[in-house]
Simulated scan of single mutants.
Amino acid sequence: MSEETEQPKKKINWTTDKIMSTSALFISVISLIALLYQSYLAREENRLIQMQQSANVIPYLQFENIYNVRSFSIHMVNKGVGPAFVKKVSFAVNDSLKFDNSTNALLHITKNRIRKGDSIGYNGSITIKENTVVQPGENISVFEISSTNNSDFSGVKSFKDYINNSPPTFTIVYEDIYGNQWKLSNNENKQDFQFLTPTLIKKID
Score class of each variant (00 low, 15 high):
residue 131 N to L: 08
residue 146 S to H: 05
residue 99 F to R: 02
residue 68 N to P: 07
residue 138 E to G: 02
residue 72 F to I: 04
residue 117 G to E: 03
residue 147 S to Q: 02
residue 108 H to W: 12
residue 64 E to R: 10
residue 123 N to H: 01
residue 95 D to E: 15
residue 84 A to Q: 02
residue 92 A to W: 07
residue 128 I to K: 02
residue 86 V to T: 00
residue 147 S to E: 02
residue 111 K to M: 15
residue 136 P to H: 01
residue 141 S to T: 15
residue 110 T to C: 13
residue 78 N to I: 03
residue 103 T to K: 07
residue 134 V to D: 06
residue 136 P to I: 07
residue 137 G to L: 06
residue 77 V to C: 09
residue 126 I to L: 06
residue 65 N to K: 14
residue 119 S to V: 09
residue 111 K to P: 00
residue 71 S to L: 08
residue 144 E to H: 12
residue 75 H to L: 07
residue 75 H to D: 11
residue 124 G to N: 07
residue 107 L to I: 07
residue 105 A to L: 04
residue 101 N to Y: 03
residue 127 T to H: 15
residue 65 N to Q: 14
residue 119 S to C: 06
residue 137 G to M: 00
residue 76 M to E: 00
residue 146 S to L: 03
residue 135 Q to A: 09
residue 102 S to K: 03
residue 97 L to H: 12
residue 119 S to H: 11
residue 144 E to V: 08
residue 86 V to L: 08
residue 108 H to R: 15
residue 107 L to T: 04
residue 76 M to S: 07
residue 133 V to I: 15
residue 118 D to P: 01
residue 64 E to D: 11
residue 74 I to P: 05
residue 87 K to E: 14
residue 109 I to S: 02
residue 110 T to Q: 01
residue 62 Q to Y: 10
residue 72 F to Y: 11
residue 80 G to S: 01
residue 109 I to W: 02
residue 145 I to W: 06
residue 82 G to F: 11
residue 61 L to D: 09
residue 94 N to Q: 11
residue 136 P to C: 01
residue 117 G to M: 04
residue 115 R to H: 11
residue 65 N to P: 03
residue 91 F to S: 03
residue 113 R to D: 00
residue 138 E to F: 09
residue 58 I to T: 15
residue 104 N to G: 14
residue 139 N to M: 05
residue 117 G to T: 04
residue 95 D to H: 14
residue 85 F to I: 06
residue 63 F to I: 02
residue 147 S to G: 05
residue 67 Y to L: 08
residue 81 V to H: 04
residue 146 S to M: 00
residue 102 S to Y: 05
residue 72 F to L: 01
residue 115 R to S: 15
residue 79 K to C: 06
residue 130 E to S: 08
residue 142 V to H: 00
residue 137 G to N: 05
residue 92 A to Q: 14
residue 142 V to M: 10
residue 96 S to A: 13
residue 149 N to F: 04
residue 96 S to V: 12
residue 143 F to G: 04
residue 102 S to L: 07
residue 85 F to S: 05
residue 74 I to F: 03
residue 66 I to E: 13
residue 66 I to A: 09
residue 105 A to P: 00
residue 122 Y to I: 06
residue 58 I to M: 15
residue 116 K to H: 14
residue 69 V to Q: 13
residue 75 H to G: 03
residue 139 N to E: 10
residue 71 S to T: 05
residue 104 N to C: 04
residue 128 I to W: 01
residue 138 E to V: 01
residue 92 A to M: 10
residue 107 L to R: 09
residue 139 N to T: 05
residue 73 S to Q: 08
residue 118 D to C: 00
residue 100 D to H: 08
residue 142 V to L: 13
